[in-house]
């Protein structure tokens, strides 16, 4: 393999891990709700979203393993990498909190993820385009579900409004990471493999603003913002606990078939 192709594959591998990690980590958080939701129908809805996300994660990990060419399976990639090698978005590792926090996290993510996957649907990489084409339908439903709850909570009771406002204030600063590009992201955008992430900012803001308006809410006032997970594996402290639990079986019993 020539040097530019090897370089391109290394970048693609990392890009796929970012996608897989983000879907899997959010799936994991939603799985924590299972059986504890505010109403049975929400247990069903959240599990649906979690199932879609794990399906997407598996496809990205499988492809990443093939691109890397070292024979690593989806499970080796998901369960045997340390925290510093995880490249999920910081937003999705944040704890569930109350249902307002979970729905605010989900909506901010879904609105962005839908734009991202619409971009990936146009990918010059046919494998990514195929994964994205199926996922766009799923994410369209996720966004409708989470936006629906943001609206109900914002324009519901005094308590629900107070909770959803607090949730957005606590989470908005993590969204800077959605649009921040590094060399890998630029390389993927230049090759037509993924969209220009910085170009997603305006349509994302328009969508979020419209939903907040319907929820009778204004844009959050928080001005802080942080980066680190998706590019550098520099996470908040929450991810370490999640991985300790998530990876416990594979760590305790290395190399077994389950």
């Amino acid at each position: 393999m020539n040097a530019p192709a090897a370089d391109r594959d290394a970048a693609l591998f990392r890009y796929l891990l970012r996608l897989g990690d983000t879907s899997h980590v959010l799936c994991h958080r939603l799985g924590e709700w299972c059986g504890h939701g505010p109403i049975m129908e929400e247990d069903i809805a959240l599990t649906n979203v979690a199932l879609d996300l794990i399906g997407q994660a598996r496809l990205f990990y499988q492809y990443a393993g093939e691109v890397e060419g070292k024979g690593r399976s989806e499970d080796e990639l998901a369960f045997l990498r340390p925290e510093r090698d995880f490249n999920n978005l910081l937003l999705v590792e944040q704890p569930n909190g109350d249902y307002a926090r979970t729905m605010a996290r989900q909506f901010l993510f879904d609105a962005w993820n839908l734009l991202l996957f619409r971009g990936l649907e146009q990918s010059t990489d046919p494998r990514i385009a195929e994964i994205a084409a199926k996922a766009v339908k799923e994410i369209t439903y996720h966004r409708r579900h989470s936006a629906g709850w943001v609206i109900r909570m914002g324009d519901g009771t005094e308590e629900s409004r107070r909770r959803i406002v607090a949730a957005f204030e606590q989470l908005m600063g993590f969204t800077a990471e959605f649009f921040h590009m590094d060399d890998i992201d630029r390389q993927m955008a230049d090759a037509g493999i993924g969209p220009d992430l910085s170009a997603l900012r305006d349509p994302w803001m328009a969508d979020v603003e419209a939903v907040l308006a319907e929820a009778t809410l204004g844009w959050p006032t928080a001005t802080w913002s942080v980066l680190g997970g998706r590019h550098e594996g520099r996470h908040t402290e929450h991810l370490g606990y999640m991985l300790a639990e998530m990876q416990s079986m594979q760590r305790q019993y290395p190399g077994l078939n389950w």
């Binding site: 399906g55 598996r58 499970d75 079986m249």
Partner: peptide, 29 residues
């Protein structure tokens, strides 16, 4: 749903995790 739900976060493989999520979802249904 609760006893099996305890293992969603510790399922040993992605395939098992997906199957367990789907099973518990069926139980809610």
């Amino acid at each position: 749903m609760l006893p099996e739900g305890n293992w969603i976060t510790r399922a040993p493989t992605l395939r098992r995790k997906a199957a367990l999520l789907a099973k518990i979802q069926d139980e809610a249904g």
